[in-house]
Simulated assay, not measured.
Amino acid sequence: MGTSLQIVENLSPGRNLDAYVQSVSAIPVLSADEERKLAERLYYEEDVASARQLVMSHLRFVVHVAKSYSGYGLPLGDLIQEGNVGLMKAVRRFDPTMGVRLVSFAVHWIKAEMHEFILRNWRIVKVATTKAQRKLFFNLRSMKKGLTWMTNDEVKAVADDLGVEAKTVREMEGRLAANDTAFDAPVADDDETPFYAPANYLEDMSADPASQVEDANWKQETEQQLMTAMQQLDERSQDILIQRWLREEKATLHELAAKYQVSAERIRQLEKNAMKKIRLALEA
């Protein structure tokens, strides 16, 4: 058993998944008596070695649970790692006096970590935020009979079973049917396989010299037109527009009203009239 533990500690499910699964499967399952003694040493004496052995002997169970979530399109290795975190939390909180096996207690912690990982990573836009939506998210995938859209009767049955409205079921079904596309995904092993990631067909024009010159000319011309239009305004109107629109810290109507000793409504009228003149000058 010691050799198997050493092998697992040198592996990661993200690096060599097959070797990892093979190694954890080789670790013997603890008997009820062995598990109880280890759990008691951990619970009463805080024995770290016992905690390690309890965790290692249940890694195969985490792999088993992770495989049941393979339909979400996320790497199995990542799911296993998240499940291992849940397993360690469960071992730390396990009370041997409860009279249940560790696996019965740990399964809830393992699934909780996997659920959090799936909801964080399955979609760029969150598909489930409330507790009811989270329940619907995981149950709807198992209740759907196939890849086709559910009938009205099926929607009603799911809604009644989960205690939600039918429109909520339809909305979640639509979210589940949507797919995110990675902007820059790995290239296929062979050059013959087409890959339609946006990075492969969206052209970046920002580095094109002609586009850069055109943008610079357009900016210069626009700024010149604006300055010419501003010069047609009286000094007060120019100052109002500069203070209200061209400064990083914009002045309020009341601040300008106090400066020119008029009402805030008068400043608003002057600003509106000045903007109208600027617009007409730029369109000419």
Rank of each mutant, 00 (worst) to 15 (best):
V164A: 01
E214D: 13
D208V: 03
T193P: 01
D190N: 15
E192H: 12
A185G: 11
S237N: 08
M205V: 08
D204A: 08
R244T: 06
I242Q: 08
D160V: 01
P209D: 02
R175S: 09
D234C: 08
M143A: 12
V158C: 03
R170V: 04
L246T: 00
A210D: 10
Q224P: 03
E203W: 14
E165S: 15
T181L: 11
Q224R: 06
T168N: 09
L233R: 06
L241F: 15
D191T: 07
Q225M: 08
R170P: 01
V169L: 05
A216K: 05
E154M: 00
I240K: 02
A207I: 14
N139Q: 13
M143R: 13
R141K: 09
E171P: 05
P198N: 02
V169H: 05
S237W: 00
A188L: 06
G163R: 14
W245P: 03
L147K: 07
E173Y: 00
A188C: 14
P186E: 10
L241Y: 09
R175Q: 10
G163W: 14
L140Y: 01
D208Y: 02
Q238V: 06
M143D: 05
A229N: 02
A188T: 05
K144T: 04
D239F: 06
E154Q: 03
E221H: 11
K167F: 15
A197Q: 08
V164R: 03
F183S: 04
T168E: 14
